[in-house]
């Protein structure tokens, strides 16, 4: 296979929509603020009442119709970690999300590099085939992939969830390729002249230049993996191997549910994603504006 450098003029693509200065099309009136405040109350209200309820005993919750607890207790949060192996599940969830995200990013980055910077026979058709998979809904792989992973003996191991992520994603390849193409070619030549190997060039020269897009992808992938329900539900059985998101379902009783404990568990699961949201909400918004979903 003959490989040479691609000398195409760098395509400049700024994918996140350029933020223009804030423009107000008119001065907001009182009722407009009132509607927005109402919307915020409706959106955040359930989280607030859930937090309040998670701080009261079940007896207190059942005996009073008020939202406010008569006495505060953290016992529900203790029970979340006692009644199911929640600490273990959190470690499992982090392990899967971090490894899957890293593996997926590395795969997508090196793939995107080939499509953006190297010239080889069949590159354009291959890239077209990669792009086409963006249109293929994830439902297509659901059952076939399960039978493959089951045959490989990976069911009830974290690898059942990590390995499929390590093939990268068509969207990430496309997104990183766009950004890599805008990097001037002299970077590659300089690195090669200095005796840098191809992987060295990718990880030492190009990776720092696409930090921003990589961060967007990392955050979206981490959220998607941590919040995933169907994957862990299908592939994991043992509670000690479960992820926290699915572990929550153990709190739902057959006939009666201890709401304060269930809500405490739900809020524990929301802690990591909320921290990420508060720090990186711009990345999340920009990434979702291009990809359309967290999956």
């Amino acid at each position: 296979m003959s490989v040479e450098l691609d000398r195409r003029p760098a395509a400049v693509t700024s994918v996140p929509p350029a933020r223009r200065g804030r423009r107000t099309h008119g001065r907001a009136r009182g009722w407009e603020y009132a509607v927005l405040v109402l919307a915020v109350v409706v959106i955040l209200g359930p989280f607030v009442v859930a937090a309040l309820t998670s701080l009261r005993t079940n007896a207190d919750y059942l005996s009073s119709t008020s939202v406010l607890p008569t006495e505060l207790t953290f016992s529900n949060y203790v029970r979340v970690f006692d009644e199911i192996p929640m600490a273990r599940m959190i470690l499992n969830g982090l392990f899967i999300a971090v490894l899957g995200t890293l593996g997926g990013l590395v795969a997508s980055l090196v793939g995107a590099f080939c499509f953006a910077k190297l010239r080889f026979a069949g590159r354009e058709p291959l890239f077209g085939v990669v792009l086409f998979t963006m249109l293929v809904p994830s439902t297509v792989t659901l059952i076939p992939l399960y039978t493959i992973i089951r045959a490989a003996g990976l069911v009830d191991t974290p690898w059942a969830l990590i390995l499929p992520l390590c093939t990268g994603s068509a969207f990430a390849v496309f997104f990183l390729r766009q950004h890599l193409m805008s990097v001037p070619h002299e970077f590659y030549e300089a690195a090669v002249l200095d005796g840098c190997s191809v992987p060295g060039t990718i990880f030492r020269v190009y990776l720092p230049l696409v930090r921003g897009p990589l961060a967007i992808l990392a955050i979206l992938n981490f959220l998607a993996s941590w919040n995933d329900l169907l994957g862990p539900l299908i592939y994991l059985n043992t509670p000690e191997k479960m992820t926290p998101t699915v572990g929550l379902t153990y709190f739902r009783g057959q006939y009666t549910t201890d709401f304060p404990v269930m809500l405490a568990g739900s809020l524990v699961v929301l802690v990591p994603t909320t921290i990420i949201f508060l720090v990186f909400n711009r990345h999340i918004r920009d990434g979702l504006a291009i990809s359309g979903s967290l999956k």
């Binding site: 927005l36 739900s266 699961v269």
Partner: peptide
């Protein structure tokens, strides 16, 4: 149209997007 508190409103309305469907459905 709002200038004041605009970023707070945006952040609050966008928040559920980052949340686990399971946790939110339990709420």
């Amino acid at each position: 149209r709002v200038a004041r508190l605009s970023s707070f409103f945006r952040l609050a309305l966008f928040f559920p997007t980052s949340c686990s469907v399971v946790a939110v459905a339990f709420l």
